[in-house]
Design a protein around this nucleic acid. Sequence first.
DNA 1: AATTGTGAACCTCTTCACAGCT
DNA 2: AGCTGTGAAGAGGTTCACAATT
Lengths: 228, 228
Amino acid sequence: MKKELWRNLPGSKESEQIQMIISDSTVRRLSQYYRTLSHLAESQVEMVSSELLSRHIGVTAAQVRKDLSYFGTFGRRGLGYRVRELQKEVANILGINRIWNVALIGVGNIGRALLDYDQFRIQGFHIVIAFDNDPQKIGKSFHGVEILDVATIPQVLPEKGVEIGIIAVPARAAQSVLDLLVQGKVKGVLNFAPINLNAPQGVFVRHQNLTIELEALSFSITNPYWVK
Amino acid sequence: MKKELWRNLPGSKESEQIQMIISDSTVRRLSQYYRTLSHLAESQVEMVSSELLSRHIGVTAAQVRKDLSYFGTFGRRGLGYRVRELQKEVANILGINRIWNVALIGVGNIGRALLDYDQFRIQGFHIVIAFDNDPQKIGKSFHGVEILDVATIPQVLPEKGVEIGIIAVPARAAQSVLDLLVQGKVKGVLNFAPINLNAPQGVFVRHQNLTIELEALSFSITNPYWVK
DNA sequence: AATTGTGAACCTCTTCACAGCT
DNA sequence: AGCTGTGAAGAGGTTCACAATT
C-alpha cells in the first residue's frame, strides 16, 4: 500500500499533475530526525519508535509518522523503524547523500567563523572557495580556502562545481552579490545579511538572521503571557 | 475603538482570563517591520502604508495590518502610518526600547564571531561577559569582553545584570550549560548547539541551527517540485 | 480617493483515533 | 500486544473584502 509523492513532470498529462507541497516545517523536522537517527546509530541502537524519535525533537509521535508518510512507508507496524535504514532514507529525501560544493561570499567575522565551522564539512557541505571585495584579502587563503575577487564569481563558480552560495556581506551589498551568484548558476543561497532578497524563479534563498532571534527572545521575556 | 491584548493576570477573574497567544511568525515579522521602519526613518520618510511595508518584507499588506492590530491601532485610515511613531511602538512591543545584558558561553569560532558582531550591540544586545571551560581562555579577554570559568555562571550572571544567554558550545555540553544559566536566573537563551534542550517553565529557549538551513536548501534543490 | 482595521472565509498544519500489520 | 500509516477532525495562521475614517 505504498503511497508516494508524484513529481509534476513537464510531460505528464493534466490529470497526473498532482502537485504535492512539502511544508518548510516538515523539511526542518526531517533534518532533526536525521541528526537524531545519526546519534542513535552511533549508539548502536537498532530500532526506534516514532514515540522515542518524537521525544528527542520535542514533537508528537503522530507528527513524526505523518512527516515520514509523505515520502513512503519506512516502518514496521508493531516494531518501529530500523535506525540505519531510516537514516539512509531521510538522507536521500534531504539530498544529503552526497557532497555539496559551497561558495562563501564575505570573509568578515561571520564569514571566517563559517569557514572555521567543522560541522558544515562533516555534514557534506564543503566550502571550496571564498570571495571578498577587500584588496587586502583577495589572493590570500583562510583555513585552506582561497579568497578571490567577487567580480570573478560568475566565472569561477561553474569551474568549481559550486551549487550553493552563502552570503555573509553587509546588507547594502547583499542583493548585488546574489545577482552575481545567480549569474554563476547557483541553485540555492543561504543569506546572513538582514535584508530581503529578490531571486529569480528556481533559485532558492533562505535567511539566517541572528538579531531576529534575539528580538523574538526579547519579546517573549517582555510579554510572557502572550507566548506559548 | 481600541482593541488590545489582555494579560492573563494572576488575580484576574475567570471571565477576564482572555489568553491571547501571539504566533512566532508574527513576532518574527515584527522584528522585520522594525528593521524596515528604521531604514525608512533614516531616509527621512515620514509616512508609510501597509502596502509599502509589506513589499519590503515580502508578505501581503493584510498581513502587516493584521499583525499590528493585535497590539493596538497605530495607523490613520486613508493616510497610512507615521514612520517614527510606528517604529517606537514596535520597539515597545518587542521590548527592545532598552539595553539587554547578554552572556556568551563558549568562545570557539562561533562564539568569537558573535563577540565580534557589531549588529548585536547596535540593536541593544550587549555581550557583557563570556564563559568557557578551557583554562587557556579563562582569565583572558576577547574584544574587551572578559572570559570566565563556566562554573562561575550562577554567581556572576546576577552581578552583571544578565538576562539573556547565548550558548555556543558543543552539543554534548549544551544541556549542562543551560542548567547553569537557569541557576543564574536568565530569562531567555539563544542556542547554537544542534540539540534540543529542556528548560523549566518561564525560561525561553530559541534555536539557531546553521546546518538545518543548509539541509533545507539541499532538499529544495533536490526536490524543486515539492516546495513553493 | 486612499488606506486602515477586522470579521469571515479560506487554507494549511497538527493531532486524534483507529484499522491494519507484525 | 505493540506500533505504524492515515483519513478525518481540530487548531491555527493567512487572505479576502468591505465598512469606517481621513
